[in-house]
Simulated assay, not measured.
Amino acid sequence: MSDSPHELPIVVLDGLMPTSQRLVLNRRGSTVWQVDTRSGQYAVKLGYPIEATPEWPAQPWTALAPVREGNVLFQLGVDDIAYGEWEHGTWNIQPWHEGPDLYRLWEPCRVPGASFEPQVSAALGCVQALAELHFKGWAHGDVQPAHFIVGPERMHLIDLALARGGRVPKAVDFPFRGCLVHYEAPEISRSVLATGEAEPTEAADIYALGASLFISATGRRVVDYPDNAPRPVQRRAIVDGRRRAVSMPGRFATLVREMLNYSPENRPTIYEVGKALS
């Protein structure tokens, strides 16, 4: 994480005319602000390249992520978005979605001895949000609990910078090099280890959703590897199938096991997952 976050560029301030703003996220390659205006609330994302360190290689693609996501959102028909360039990279403006993410919502499930069980309604909300994306011909590529926001009326699936499905201009595109490894399907990890790249798929999204439901309910990763293990070591554990036993309450256990099937062709579709839950 950088010592000081990047401030909102003048072009964004002039366009939004904020009444207030709050820093939400400040990490390597990305800064996110919640911005209040007279016309509504917005999320503003700033992207900039990650410089190389002794522990991490340089990552120039992070500078393009906000404008790529803006392009994806535009193709998906999302209203009230804007995107462009600033001195360090790119930015986008999109509607702010208020509410807890899935992991926070299911926090009571993870309290030792708790009788609280994961709500089927929340899982169905995740399924519906992902199904909408798949119906439009897109794979998300970065499904994780933090990207499901539980709004007052519906579940929102956010962070589509890595999504694949439509035609993204070459000037703002970049290869998919995997996602947060906790939710990475074996075929994705295998491809990244072999070539440095992979192709997001709907089947990989299903695996990631199963892993998201499991960790949100139990607090445990699907694949067992040390917390501080390097990414290649983590991915090798995924490819080698070092899976924990899937134990979840209610109807979830059998379904999540199917979603986490090692072979992508044997995983249920998003529609089959929804049918099983409902």
Rank of each mutant, 00 (worst) to 15 (best):
D142K: 00
Q144V: 01
P145V: 02
P145N: 04
P145R: 01
P145D: 00
A146D: 14
A146N: 09
A146I: 00
H147C: 01
F148W: 01
F148D: 01
F148H: 02
I149F: 04
V150Q: 02
G151M: 02
P152W: 03
P152F: 04
E153V: 12
E153Y: 08
E153C: 07
R154S: 15
R154P: 00
M155Y: 06
M155G: 08
M155N: 05
H156A: 13
L157C: 14
I158Q: 02
D159R: 10
D159M: 11
D159G: 10
L160K: 00
L160G: 00
A161K: 03
A161V: 07
A161Q: 12
L162N: 05
L162G: 00
A163D: 00
A163P: 06
A163T: 02
R164C: 06
R164I: 13
G165L: 01
G165D: 06
G165K: 02
G165Q: 03
G165H: 08
G165S: 11
G166F: 01
R167Y: 09
R167I: 13
R167V: 13
P169H: 08
P169S: 05
K170S: 13
K170G: 14
A171Y: 05
A171V: 11
V172Y: 08
D173G: 10
F174L: 05
F174R: 09
F174P: 09
P175S: 10
P175Q: 11
P175I: 13
F176E: 00
F176R: 04
R177W: 03
G178Y: 04
G178D: 01
G178F: 07
G178P: 06
L180F: 07
L180N: 11
V181C: 10
H182G: 12
H182F: 12
Y183R: 11
Y183P: 06
Y183T: 04
E184C: 12
A185R: 07
A185S: 14
P186F: 05
P186M: 13
E187L: 11
E187T: 11
S189E: 06
R190Y: 01
S191E: 14
V192A: 07
L193I: 14
L193E: 12
L193S: 11
L193R: 10
A194K: 14
A194T: 12
A194I: 09
T195G: 07
T195H: 15
G196Q: 13
G196S: 13
E197N: 15
